[in-house]
Design a protein around this nucleic acid. Sequence first.
DNA 1: TCTAGTCTTCTTGTATACAAGTCTTGCAGT
DNA 2: ACTGCAAGACTTGTATACAAGAAGACTAGA
Lengths: 224, 224
Amino acid sequence: MKLLERLPRESSGEYALRIIKESIISLELPPGSQISESELAAEMGLSRTPVREALIELSKVKIVDIQPQKKSTIPLIDYEMVEESRFMRSLLECAVVELDCEMAAPADLDRLRENIRVQNLYLDDFYSTQLLTLDNEFHGMLFSIARKSQIFALMQNISIHFDRVRSMALSSVKNLKIVQDHVDLVDAIERRDPAAAKALMEKHLNRYRIDAAALRAEYPQYFK
Amino acid sequence: MKLLERLPRESSGEYALRIIKESIISLELPPGSQISESELAAEMGLSRTPVREALIELSKVKIVDIQPQKKSTIPLIDYEMVEESRFMRSLLECAVVELDCEMAAPADLDRLRENIRVQNLYLDDFYSTQLLTLDNEFHGMLFSIARKSQIFALMQNISIHFDRVRSMALSSVKNLKIVQDHVDLVDAIERRDPAAAKALMEKHLNRYRIDAAALRAEYPQYFK
DNA sequence: TCTAGTCTTCTTGTATACAAGTCTTGCAGT
DNA sequence: ACTGCAAGACTTGTATACAAGAAGACTAGA
């Protein structure tokens, strides 16, 4: 478990949630592994309480499996769950980019393009965590512009299933396509072309569907 | 706060969450009111811990507002949030009934019709809680049939905003229409007619949009 | 009278102690 | 050798004690 720095004014609970979430996505807490409130708390230098709160939240979206009075584990990757997560994202994101075509102000487009510019800086970097973060921010902006931030927050939770698979799959070759998708998306929004924007988003999110089959062959121990 | 019976094998935390959620929907914890972990715990005969866990979960979907070290309140009804919630439901439910048209087995249709039959028994009842529960079960079944249960669970959380408004608006006249909608929906699914099913669902969920304006006039103190 | 400061009392946040359930391990009896 | 039971070492669940921050009231001083 990699201990990141604690952000200013971040409560212990928020800190625990952030660290655990990152560790699951980065596979430092690998699928199938057993976890313990006490152990995690000790590693992070906290008490069980905030760690427990974090685990409870993660268990709500089945990214942590709490078996009362027995044990807690990081579930194996359940392809049905990944697909359910992808289905939900696809629906919501497509609807949101359509709204964006009506609602995006010039300043919004500037912010999106600035984000993409930074994405390009990290393109060749092996440390794709940065790129993942920027990607999340990009999609978050699309929701924010359409005044659907709360939905984005909710979706983030179930998307962890998705992100975990993504972090196994990301290669710099793919990254190139992904960033280009973002460019095309912003262009479509600027042209106020909802049909094109929706189609682009659908294609964009579909890039991850193909990966799963190959990954399953490569890391069979992580799959159900 | 109405104390319901504790279900068998229900943990304190689950119990607390259920009671608090019901109390918010039924307006026994009215919008704008201040709440306190200690008070709620005392009323329910529990310690702060499980109550706190429940409040944290509810605060994630902004149906409880926790101001650290200050106070916690039940937020006023925020129409933007209700609309966001309705937007999300509409999108997901419409997509799901389309799937149901392909995926529903005869046994599934039977279970749906049985639920509707019971709905009719409670039609004239003033205690619409029963009807609300049946309605939720009905929609839950639609998700389950399409193998999208996790999405339904997630959606339930943000739907509290919606349900709170619903519980102010439900009248037996409306109930009649709602139950008829359900009948029509199941018919469309049986006919394997996704276009009709989607249209019906959209109309069905739209019934609640109209209410909000009138309610705001009637209960201005509950709105932001 | 007004203002500044402090103290009391509330809140939530965190740590710790204890309860209760589950599984394993080892020992005793057959 | 095998079976059954009991003790212990885990787990998570719950209760309680304490810390820290915020807000208001009250007092002392100008």
